[in-house]
């Protein structure tokens, strides 16, 4: 008993002996692996958002440099943008339901929610690709003007993130199918859900700055 007390005295936070005992502010030792993984991925997402902020700044600076070509007001179809927004928001919601299903260890609801997330994400991508194809076939591709270069870079970069997210989504479905809701798989799911929700946050800035302000301001 005396020995334990002495140990606790030398090591009041039980460093290296955490897991389930943390009570905030570092008390109780280091956080669990899940919390450290989530924190690390959160920092990656924030750095990704900082990268997008540079693309947003580029777009905002170049938005009026149309080189005699079409402006956003002439190009953008707000109904298309609204449909894309609806797809991505519902997809984010479905992803949240998949997180809940995984936390409750319900494989069936997890697959259903992930399938919904995937279909809605693909719907978003299909709309975006058809919009890009329409612009390019009308001669308004990324080489037309500085405005369109910035537009395709910003919106295309978000579209690439969504595409990568869908590949990751399919990987997570396969991993749960093959390995079940193991602790390491659950940590990857946490990161995937964070990634998918962050994409929706970036899209909020995107439809506001690019589409709504492009048409109305």
């Amino acid at each position: 008993m005396t020995e334990t007390v002495a140990l606790a005295h030398n090591d009041p936070y039980a460093l290296g002996h955490g897991h389930g005992l943390a009570v905030g502010h570092g008390g109780g030792g280091p956080a669990s692996k899940r919390i450290i993984v989530g924190y690390g991925f959160w920092i990656f997402l924030l750095s990704d958002i900082v990268m997008f902020s540079a693309l947003f700044a580029t777009y905002a600076v170049l938005v009026e440099r149309t080189a005699g070509g079409p402006s956003g007001r002439e190009l953008f179809d707000l109904r298309g943008a609204a449909a894309e927004t609806a797809f991505l928001l519902l997809s984010s919601f479905a992803c949240g339901l998949a997180s809940i299903a995984a936390a409750a260890r319900s494989a069936r609801w997890y697959y259903i929610a992930m399938a919904a997330t995937c279909v809605l994400g693909l719907g978003f991508l299909a709309l975006e690709i058809s919009e890009f194809a329409r612009f390019v076939s009308d001669g308004d591709g990324p080489t037309r003007s500085a405005f369109l270069s910035a537009f395709f870079t910003l919106v295309g970069c978000h579209g690439l993130h969504v595409s990568a997210g869908i590949l990751w989504l399919l990987t997570m479905v396969a991993q749960v199918f093959a390995k079940g809701f193991r602790a390491d798989i659950m940590r990857r799911l946490l990161c995937f859900a964070l990634f998918w929700h962050a994409l929706d946050i970036i899209w909020v800035g995107l439809f506001t700055v690019v589409y709504l302000m492009g048409v109305y301001v």
Binding site: G20, L21, A22, G24, W42, I100, A104, L190, A193
Partner: peptide
């Protein structure tokens, strides 16, 4: 009381 203070971003607290 212990778990609710220790969360990762995006964490769910569900035991079913």
């Amino acid at each position: 009381s212990i778990e609710e203070f220790d969360t990762a971003p995006g964490d769910e607290h569900l035991d079913g």
